[in-house]
Computed example of a mutant assay.
Amino acid sequence: MTVHSSSLDNAALELSRAAGVLATAASERRSSWLKLEPLSDSSSLNAGFKQLPAFDQPTSDVAAQMDAVVSTLVTTADALRLIEGYISYLERLGNQSLMVSVMLRYLGNLGALLDFMCAREISALCTAISPPPLKYLASFSDLPAAAIHEYHLLHAPPEIQQLARDNPDMQILEAGDGSLVAAFGDIDSAATITTIVAGVGSSDTEQWPAHMGRARNIQAATGGATMMWLGYAAPPTLAHGLARAPARAAADRLEEFQNSLRQRNPSQRQVVMGYSYGSTVVGTAGKSLQADALVLVGSPGAGTGVSHASELGSEVYAITGTADPIGFAATRYDGIHGIDPTSPTFGATVFPSSSDHSGYWGDEAFLGQLREVVQGVDIKKPPP
């Protein structure tokens, strides 16, 4: 934990003393000014004396503000003391079992979250500005992912909390309003992260277990952390998938999310993989994404207005299986959602595949190629 209860106790004590000094000084000045009022026969002077106490109100307000901060510090210190007691007990056991290690990590994460929430509350008290809701990854600053997960276990909708309990290998990073962003693997220590942007129907909670399975497959194949990004209102059906507006809105959110990931770990290799309509989201975001590589899988188009892979600002890879009917959605010239990214003139590195639209996740050849992309292996373009 970054802060100990004793440090908070000391800070609360010093702040309480300072608040007391300010409050006493303000009270004494008000008393002195009131005593001066009867000494003057001038009505104008009397009126002035009556106004003097108002000039001291800011000092009283600051003292009250400091008292509120003291209360927050004391409450936080009490909670931290309880956590520290459990940690001390477990450490004294001398037990190096997996269960004890897991409990120690869990308590450490609770401590980090408590420290973060305390700082957030103090900031609100001192600035009189209500902080924005803790919804997106950027809102949590550099709080460890495991601590962010603990926050969502308390505040996420019940169905997402249950999903997390049923899948203990998943860490929730964003949740609510029909969206879910979750990690498989430790994003704070992993050398690589692959963000999977899902397509049509991915906002349907009944489909989430399937997306989780895909994320686990990619994690196992690449050896790095994997992000299941269901962070937008996806078109519910193929017919709705003809619309471009959801892709534009999702592109903005994806850009914000990837920027947050990059700020957390600038040296990490980060790959964004868009599947089906999700590939159009990735292409629409394009060079605004903080990513080392983009992978467009089963794509109906690389995004309107994108004519060449070089416009996307990263390494670009594309794959559409010969048995995937989505290949008819775009051509080398154009389509509803832009150019087919597997077209030779588009300029992406194209992986050959005979998969149908749902077969990529079990395609060992593709998973091997993806592993090389994620690990940064120099891939030679196959002949056209």
Rank of each mutant, 00 (worst) to 15 (best):
residue 82 L to C: 03
residue 82 L to M: 06
residue 82 L to S: 15
residue 84 E to N: 04
residue 87 I to R: 14
residue 87 I to G: 08
residue 88 S to D: 15
residue 90 L to R: 08
residue 90 L to A: 15
residue 90 L to Y: 06
residue 91 E to T: 10
residue 92 R to V: 12
residue 93 L to V: 09
residue 94 G to Q: 13
residue 96 Q to A: 04
residue 97 S to Y: 06
residue 97 S to K: 04
residue 98 L to G: 02
residue 98 L to V: 10
residue 102 V to A: 12
residue 104 L to Y: 07
residue 105 R to N: 14
residue 105 R to V: 11
residue 105 R to K: 04
residue 105 R to C: 02
residue 106 Y to M: 13
residue 108 G to P: 05
residue 108 G to E: 15
residue 109 N to K: 05
residue 109 N to P: 00
residue 110 L to T: 03
residue 110 L to G: 02
residue 111 G to R: 01
residue 112 A to R: 11
residue 113 L to C: 02
residue 114 L to N: 03
residue 114 L to A: 08
residue 114 L to R: 00
residue 115 D to K: 04
residue 115 D to V: 00
residue 116 F to V: 00
residue 116 F to E: 01
residue 117 M to I: 00
residue 118 C to Y: 08
residue 118 C to P: 01
residue 119 A to I: 05
residue 119 A to K: 02
residue 120 R to M: 07
residue 122 I to G: 01
residue 123 S to K: 11
residue 123 S to V: 05
residue 124 A to L: 06
residue 125 L to T: 01
residue 127 T to E: 13
residue 127 T to D: 15
residue 128 A to H: 14
residue 128 A to Q: 05
residue 128 A to V: 12
residue 128 A to W: 10
residue 137 L to A: 05
residue 138 A to M: 09
residue 138 A to K: 10
residue 138 A to H: 13
residue 140 F to P: 02
residue 140 F to T: 11
residue 140 F to G: 04
residue 141 S to A: 07
residue 141 S to V: 05
residue 142 D to Q: 06
residue 142 D to W: 03
residue 144 P to C: 05
residue 147 A to W: 03
residue 147 A to S: 12
residue 147 A to M: 10
residue 147 A to E: 01
residue 147 A to C: 02
residue 148 I to Y: 04
residue 149 H to F: 13
residue 150 E to C: 09
residue 151 Y to R: 12
residue 151 Y to F: 13
residue 151 Y to M: 02
residue 152 H to V: 09
residue 153 L to P: 00
residue 153 L to C: 10
residue 156 A to K: 03
residue 159 E to G: 04
residue 159 E to R: 01
